[in-house]
Design a protein around this nucleic acid. Structure first.
Lengths: 344, 344
DNA sequence: GTGAAAGCGCTAACAT
DNA sequence: ATGTTAGCGCTTTCAC
């Protein structure tokens, strides 16, 4: 391979001839494979260092591993994904793996498919799909060829591993908290469905259904009020505007994600109302911004770092040969802050 | 290539034999290359569709292009990067390119180098480096082999293209705004230097130096107060705590980034002070959250979408053969909101 | 306009 | 323990 400035990139052959050994030997040293003497290892390593050799992932991909994991995110705007990624990176870096991220460009199932395809085309050794909206059959097809972890979906699969938050428990915590404070007119902001996937397995649906169930269990079925927008600042803002326009208006809003809760806080403020005086707000994810003093948002905490770490560990296990599917669930906790209080 | 469930992945050979043509012909159709008849094109395309063929990026990389651009981000937590990426994706998708993102894992120059290496190893056709802290020589070495755009650095290079915000103009807008409101004790939150790069080319240094210059030009040199932490919520919080502890305390804080400004708002609130009553705050980046009514942060807007789009365009131009370096600068504007007002 | 064949850098089966 | 060699899927001369 000739680089653009005319110099050849250093290849395994260069290293081999420089060390006066075979390419096989170099390859074995690179992969810490069985059957190399100490002397050989030292000699080869010296040549590698001297020449500044780095193996080309593309050539490796043709025969063996790429030492790369792919991560599919709906988008990079949600800070909760950053937690997941930090945990993931930490876990896989130790095993010599590199994570590459592709954006699914929003909630569009088609864009998500092409993001997944992009990773498959690049022969990654494993894939982490976060909050996928794509059809389950598509995920399973991929999982049959590449070790796969699906994060944040509640469907059970025999071919891919799952990492998820117990969203039912989390939503219960949020709604029970508001009810115990004395609220009755509690509204919920959820995400509009897209894609062909059976919606009941998606986390936003679980959170919304649980909200409805808990409300009903407490005899508050008549006060169920849903706004289906998006888990974004804009979505939370718009949903809250809708909800506040109803008569009587809710005294509390449970937003399915902190990003939406932040938008809700803004909309409440714009309406000339106070938090928590007129309306209490509870979010989900416990983003760092939720802890900021001037925001102080009550939120459900799910440990993104642990979820990311676990996803990394599960992929590494698959590489090592595990073939049975595993399901890992974290238990959420409620973090109470000043955005929630008893109704006036 | 045999997939894990035993089926072979469809290759160019399969398509060729299915269409009863040569692999050369298929390759040409794939790349829209010169010298294929309409009949040939149709026949091959039909076979591709029928077999669900997708070229393997790894194999392509061995000979030609990967149709992949790599993006190096310090981390994915800053929402401003999401704007850049949205613009970038939009621009390159039309040309059939896919972006893959790698995290530099914070501000650590070493981590950034390994992120860059990871992309080079994967033979991407071009690289966008955002807010790099790595030494310039390292960037140039990479740029000599792979088309490169450096976003957010002010050094001039003959080998890579630059996309940047006029940070000097932006910082001037912010400081002049506060001065014109009547503030004199204006403090600034900047980022601590790391890495071996000549710091003066980094955007946070430019913003800080400009702050000092404008203060001095207005006879306020004695009131210059800097806190060097980080462009994060935590950094802004900590820096503000430091600044508020000084006597007399500043009446205004110009944070080098909105993320830091959000942390500043929290710290001011914790100190029992009001914004803008006791302390005015101005940020930089005009993140979406800055516009939220309950936050209402005055901020310097730089168009991340345009910057991302331009970066994509410049890479595509390089692929098409441009060899002279280009420098593209966006002009920032001030968005005035309620976080800034005359001092008491 | 079309196809045969070489070869990119690496790994793995096999031979020594 | 070490080396020889075939071949992964694709692009690219170079014939025809």
């Amino acid at each position: 391979m000739v680089t653009r400035d005319g110099r050849r990139r250093v290849t395994i052959t260069d290293v081999a001839s420089h060390a006066r050994v075979s390419t096989t030997a170099v390859s074995k040293v690179l992969r810490n494979a069985y059957g190399v003497s100490e002397a050989m290892r030292a000699k080869v390593q010296a040549a590698i260092d001297e020449l500044g050799y780095r193996p080309q992932a593309a050539a490796r991909a043709m025969r063996g591993r790429t030492f790369t994991f792919g991560v599919v995110l709906p988008h990079i705007r949600n800070p909760f994904f950053a937690d997941i990624l930090d945990g993931f990176d930490e876990q896989i870096a130790g095993a010599g793996y590199q994570a590459i991220i592709v954006q699914g460009s929003g909630r569009d199932a088609e864009a998500e498919v092409s993001a997944i395809d992009a990773l498959v085309d690049r022969q990654v050794d494993g894939i982490l799909v976060v909050a996928a909206v794509v059809a389950r059959a598509r995920l399973e097809e991929m999982a049959r060829n590449t070790p796969t972890v699906v994060l944040g979906r509640h469907d059970r699969s025999a071919v891919y591993d799952s990492v998820l938050d117990d969203d039912e428990a989390g939503a219960e915590l949020a709604v029970e908290h508001l009810i115990s404070l004395g609220h009755r007119r509690i509204a919920h902001i959820t995400q509009k469905d897209v894609g062909a996937v059976r919606s009941v397995t998606l986390l936003h649906t679980i959170r919304a259904r649980t909200y409805e169930r808990v409300m009903a269990e407490h005899g508050l079925a008549e006060h169920i009020a849903l706004a289906a927008t998006a888990y974004t600042e804009e979505g939370g803002h718009q949903g809250t505007c809708e909800l506040l326009a109803r008569t009587p208006r809710p005294t509390a809003i449970f937003a399915g994600a902190d990003q939406a809760a932040f938008g809700a806080l803004a909309a409440i403020h714009e309406a000339g109302l106070a938090v928590p005086g007129d309306v209490s707000v509870v979010g989900y994810d416990n983003a760092r911004a939720a802890a900021l003093s001037h925001i102080s948002l009550t939120s459900v905490d799910q440990d993104g770092i642990i979820m990311g770490k676990t996803a990394g560990r599960l992929l590494l296990e698959r590489i090592e040969g595990r073939t049975t599917a595993v399901r890992f669930s974290v238990t959420p906790t409620l973090v109470t802050r000043r955005s929630s209080a008893p109704p006036a």
